[in-house]
Design a binder for these strands. Structure first.
Lengths: 252, 252
DNA sequence: GAAAGAAAATGATTGACATTGATTGAAAAT
DNA sequence: ATTTTCAATCAATGTCAATCATTTTCTTTC
């Protein structure tokens, strides 16, 4: 059997079962354990699988599905998110210089933007692609790519937006809490989110109603730093601290 | 049997089985192994299949198309490009700080890099993703995304690498000419390529033999600025101007 | 149209190189 | 402490590109 054929069969088996042992592969592919070990080592070097004691483990490959692999997560509350995104998009005007945060909610709003001369900066790869595709002038920040979300984060990216002064920025968040403000689970993401908010004349946070009274690990801005665009506001106490636009209830 | 008939039967078999060995083809098509080898070599040069040890593998067109639109262009000279990429990868050592230019040739070389502690900066989105996935520390430059190639270009990107001092950089090129140096069709690409070469202690240009004596619109470096890694050197006069490594001919 | 010559394709051979499976002592898991 | 797994090594086998002689195909010339 050809080396390449073994490779693809090993990878195929991994995709099915998640993990597979050297012994198993050896008998399944009718070849010696030595060879299987060598194959696993080679595939591991190529990053196609993860070598573990006794066999191999599948590596979650996000290479191919470059644009929409976050769909599963974003499938929830589609309607609400869409309404939020639509409203947020209308706030962008022709002379705006806008920062768009990475994430699924902000990705949605790009479809509804109509401001041909607006200029965009974003740390989301899919966001930049989409904007360019729609004919907008769009820039990505420099820095490290986070594979799962295709966001660019880290000190490098923070630095790369420090020369800008945005008229508006649109951020996602994982939690909104009166005392802890806007929070996100990752410290690198928090850093760039925070910097973007500080460098914007107006900051908008897009969040569906499930995000209220939630706290995640790292705060990137306090409530008073940004307006919130949400679908419905169940907790009136938040209104004391910042401007909140609830797209489902107000006017229409 | 006609040459063209063998070609199509080989490709047909590949489509069915994914991989096929020289021995198998030899008995199936009633012809010598020598001929089969020659056929496979020819088809591989055309990019219709991938040559592997012991036989041939079908080209996985789905992977290529999703990763870059330049399929047609990149399909040619696959073998040569791979050899160039392989050699280039071996020059990267563990303590290197490397700039990787966007483009298909440089994307190829990432598969063969083995230097766990090397750090990478690139203006190619697929490049950054691949490097991260392989566990390397990798950064993307900031700036404007070019949709077709998923490269980041423009003044912004030039500025974002100006703080770095690379030990090595690996560049693609569209033309190599003694008087005009290394050239590329796009001025934005030329700007960042040029800056990367200037900021590197060693610069390597990866180019198959078809690039020699070609001139494109914008020069990004002169011949003496970079070593050339190529498959075969047909024009000896270039050797007067820079160091050239031809991976096919030299002491194999 | 036939003969002669040139060019291309083929098959066999060869030494160099790559892959394989078995073996071994070291390392890791239990 | 025992068993399993591992990487390194080695001999045997399989595969490779290069070369050459032979055959086939295409041109040229008469």
């Amino acid at each position: 059997m050809l080396l390449e054929e073994r490779f693809s069969r090993i990878l195929h088996l991994l995709k099915q079962k998640g993990t597979v042992s050297v012994t198993e592969l050896s008998s399944l592919l009718h070849t010696s354990e030595s060879t299987i070990r060598r194959d696993i080592a080679a595939l591991s070097r190529q990053g196609k699988l993860k070598k573990v004691y006794g066999g191999a483990k599948a590596v979650d490959s996000t290479i191919l599905t470059s644009e929409f692999d976050v769909q599963t997560k974003s499938a929830m509350n589609v309607e609400e998110k869409t309404k939020i995104a639509q409203y947020a998009a209308t706030t962008i005007q022709n002379d705006d210089f806008v920062y768009i945060d990475a994430g699924t909610t902000t990705l949605l709003m790009l479809d509804y933007i109509d401001a041909p001369n607006a200029v965009f900066v974003t740390n989301g790869i899919p966001h930049a692609k989409k904007l360019i595709q729609k004919g907008y002038q769009a820039y990505v920040t420099g820095g490290q790519i986070k594979l799962a979300t295709e966001a660019i984060v880290g000190a490098e990216s923070v630095q790369s937006i420090q020369k800008y002064n945005f008229t508006k920025c649109f951020m996602g968040t994982n939690g909104i809490d009166i005392k802890r403000g806007f929070t996100t689970p990752n410290i690198d993401e928090a850093l760039i989110k925070g910097e973007a908010v500080r460098r914007s004349y107006m900051a908008y946070v897009l969040a569906d109603h499930t995000k209220f009274r939630q706290v995640s690990s790292v705060t990137f801005a306090s409530l008073s730093d940004a307006c919130i665009i949400t679908d419905q506001l169940n907790f009136k106490e938040f209104e004391e601290y910042t401007v909140i636009k609830a797209v489902n209830t107000d006017h229409q």
